[in-house]
Design a protein around this nucleic acid. Structure first.
Length: 737
RNA sequence: GGAUCCUUAGCUCAGCUGGUUAGAGCGCUACAUUCACACUGUAGAGGUCAGAAGUUCGAAUCUUCUAGGAUCCACCA
């Protein structure tokens, strides 16, 4: 038996294999057969990729390779996301740390240069990672959500939606982050509990409770539930004189069902400018809205002697003043107040009213519900459909503008008109246009200013499945051939941020669904079942694992235990299991290759040190002589009982595998193959044929056994190539071809 | 408060249009060892499928309830 083939699969050659594939154009769509397209979820350019990325791209690539193997015209389109707020926050942190400068100190233009430095640093690293995951993407079609084409798509989408009346500008209560000086979407907020004093004050004939006396300067409405018997004698609109923080005020009675009669005293005053519920009540009843706190979290002149002070530190003094005036009833010190904070920047949210751009939910949500209800889009697992419907039903308008610098500029201009000084009233209307207007259509002034805000990241992400394929050019060949896309793989946690919005925007702009099938993987937890996060220090770097065990081992370990929608506990042990499997496959192949080579060529007089690991031509040639001859590839027409049984079982495995791919049970498909290869093939069938080969004096019988092994191996490797492409490629190249 | 999901061997998980003795990997025990592979092989121990009730000829699988756990959404003046 020649000793030239090493007993271990050498995974360090995986990058070379990828380079060969790429150079050979293996991932460029063939253009022949039924189209099958996957536009990958673009990873945020926030840094290096994590285990969840390895999982999602592993699943996508396994599916893509399978479809390619079935003869389809497969497109895997790669890309990355500019992640407006996330990247801006990271770059701000970086320049603060490195230069001690804040964003406003450095200025918008310079800041964006810093962002591009960041992007150019991380993008190539991330591309390398995706390649090491084995992602069989066509890199010539690579897209970034901030490239020129994406910008055009975003502007076009904005203008078209505006023209359809689906985008509008309105004063609205928004989540303002005084630290980042920006609005934050509801989805980007998390709540923390804070121990705080909970005060009860006299307010005219009523008692009201609050954790935030500093917001109460403008309160002049007192609200109660319309059916609360205790307050039945008060009528909506009744007014009364009332001593309050800075003197006497006139308060008005309001009745609204938003008040919970069970909570506290059952009455409350409202602060519409700084509280969402209060804003809604005030809007319903057409009440005044008064600003008390400025954008930096400081009190305005309405606060009298407290004006200019930070809200948090003024709170106790304000409470003290109310106490001195005899208005304090009691203080509950055990109260835990829920505080909203931005999970990106970490600032405490202070709601404010600001003009913002919105996208209407109502007009598109019916189409989005129908797309899934009708089965035009399928979800795996199916139960997430319920979640999706539930969310859409309660959907409110989406605030799409952000007071950030990094992101898509809003294609809206305003006439400033200082050059001619003859602006008309109409000049105040926004000019919404795909290309920058040269002059104001009303007064002709060339002095125009673009809206300083940028768009929420998810707006451009929502266009991703079609903007990448050439939209808004309806005639783009990729758009015509590959849209709607076939398959979307993502995490269940972004079903609303992203999946639902892609469906809505796609329906609104293209009139089609963006994809046919959505597969949600389960997210990866650590061995203790906790979420992996940088702050906990329990993250596992996929690149380190690939260096240690190989890309295929990592992929199989991630796919192996992952059921859609169900969280998966993960540890290095699982990678070791599949690394061992790779070694097993390697060695079984090694035996088969050598046995079949020996049968037909009496070579093996090669020098013992023939360096098969080196790439020189000698080793290539001697390797060739060892490879099986063509006739060994055909399954013999005569089989004995054991062989017949084995091939029946193999055929069953192949059928089950195909079914599992159809049902998207990748984990089951892989585990069945693992079982079959290791135990049915290597432990039993291979051992059986080995004995036949050794003990049979009939050359024809031995040859039959060898052919059986070769055919069986080849068929299993074909299935395995979806899951372990590098391993199978190495085996094919070094032993079989 | 609303919703979704989970609970199967020591650990991680399969198994679910209900049907022979409930499976795998890791771990554990004993044995084997030049013959593809110790990142190995052979043999084995280990489970009243969270608990209770119901439907059924038959339930890990379907229904209801109970207990424990996870996640998402809303609200908390």
């Amino acid at each position: 038996m020649p000793k030239e083939i090493p007993t271990r699969y050498d995974h360090t050659k995986e990058p070379d294999i990828y380079a060969r594939w790429e150079a050979g154009g293996a991932f460029v769509p063939s253009g022949k057969g039924e189209p099958y397209s996957i536009v990958i979820p673009p990873p945020n350019v926030t840094g290096d990729l994590h285990l969840g990325h390895a999982l999602t791209y592993g699943i996508q690539d396994t599916i893509a390779r399978h479809q390619r193997r079935l003869g389809k015209d497969v497109l895997v389109l790669p890309g990355m996301d500019h992640a407006a707020i996330a990247v801006q926050a990271l770059v701000e942190k970086k320049i603060q740390k490195e230069k001690g400068l804040s964003r406003s100190q450095i200025g918008r233009e310079k800041f964006l240069e810093e962002v591009w430095v960041w992007i150019k640093h991380y993008m190539p690293r991330m591309e390398t990672s995706l390649k090491r995951f084995g992602l069989s993407a066509d890199w010539s079609r690579f897209r970034f959500t901030m490239d020129e084409h994406s910008k055009l798509a975003v502007r076009t989408a904005f203008v078209r939606l505006y023209e359809k009346g689906l985008i509008y500008k309105s004063e609205f209560i928004i989540n303002w982050d005084p630290k980042m000086q920006t609005t934050i979407s509801d989805d980007e907020i998390e709540y923390i509990e804070e121990a705080t004093s909970f005060y009860t004050f006299k307010f005219g004939p009523f008692e009201i409770s609050t954790a935030r006396p500093e917001t109460k300067f403008g309160d002049k409405y007192i609200v109660m539930h319309p059916r609360d018997k205790r307050y039945a004698k008060y009528k909506e609109g009744d007014t009364f004189e009332c001593e309050w923080i800075n003197g006497k005020i006139t308060a008005t009675i309001i009745k609204d069902e938003a008040v919970d009669p069970e909570f506290g005293t059952g009455v409350m005053t409202i602060t519409p400018w700084h509280d969402k519920t209060d804003f809604e009540i005030a809007t319903r009843h057409k009440l005044d809205k008064i600003q008390v706190i400025d954008q930096f979290g400081k009190l305005l002149p309405i606060a009298g002697e407290f004006a200019g002070r930070k809200i948090d530190e003024a709170r106790k003094d304000i409470a003290q003043k109310l106490k001195d005036k005899g208005l304090l009833v009691k203080v509950d010190e055990s109260y835990r107040h829920r505080v909203a904070v931005s999970y990106r920047g970490g600032g405490k949210i202070e709601p404010q009213i600001l003009p913002q751009w919105f996208m209407k939910a109502t007009a598109v949500k019916e189409a989005a519900i129908k797309a899934v209800k009708s089965g035009e889009i399928k979800f795996t697992p199916k139960n997430l459909e319920k979640l999706y419907f539930h969310w859409l039903k309660n959907l409110h308008d989406w605030c799409i503008s952000r007071q950030l610098w990094w992101g898509h500029e809003i294609p809206v201009w305003y006439c400033v008109g200082t050059d001619k000084g003859r602006c008309l009233p109409e000049c105040r209307e926004p000019i919404v246009s795909i290309e920058p207007p040269k002059s104001c259509p009303h007064c002709g002034s060339r002095d125009l200013e673009q809206d300083p805000d940028v768009l929420d990241t998810w707006f451009s992400s929502g266009l991703w499945p079609f903007s990448t394929l050439g939209w808004p050019n309806e005639e783009a060949p990729d758009l015509k051939r590959y849209f709607p896309t076939s398959f979307l793989e993502t995490a269940p946690e972004i079903i609303f941020f992203w999946v639902a919005r892609m469906i809505m925007l796609s329906e609104a702009l293209t009139g089609q669904v963006p994809f046919r099938h959505v597969y949600f993987h389960g997210f990866v937890l650590d061995a203790k079942g906790e979420k992996m996060s940088k702050s906990k220090g329990n993250v596992m770097d996929p690149m380190v694992m690939i260096d240690k065990y190989g890309s295929d081992a990592l992929r199989m370990s991630l796919l192996g235990g992952n059921s859609p929608g169900t969280p998966q506990r993960y540890s290095e042990q699982k990678i070791i299991k599949y690394r061992n499997f790779a070694t097993k496959v390697w060695n079984a192949s090694r035996y088969v290759a050598e046995a079949t080579a020996n049968q037909l060529s009496a070579v093996s007089n090669q020098p013992k040190n023939a360096a098969f690991e080196s790439q020189d031509e000698n080793s290539e040639r001697s390797a060739d002589s060892r490879k099986p001859k063509a006739e060994s590839w055909v399954l013999p027409s005569i089989l004995d009982h054991t062989e017949e049984k084995f091939f029946e079982k193999l055929a069953k495995l192949e059928a089950k595998n195909e079914k599992n791919f159809t049902d998207l049970k990748l984990s089951v498909a892989l585990e069945e193959l693992y079982e079959f290869f290791w135990h049915d093939f290597a432990d039993q069938f291979l051992e059986y044929e080995k004995t036949v080969i050794r003990e049979s004096d009939n050359k024809v019988r031995a040859k039959q056994a060898k052919s059986c092994l070769l055919v069986a191996l080849k068929r299993q490797l074909t299935i395995l190539s979806d899951f372990a492409p590098f391993l199978v490629e190495s085996i094919n190249k070094e032993m079989l071809s």
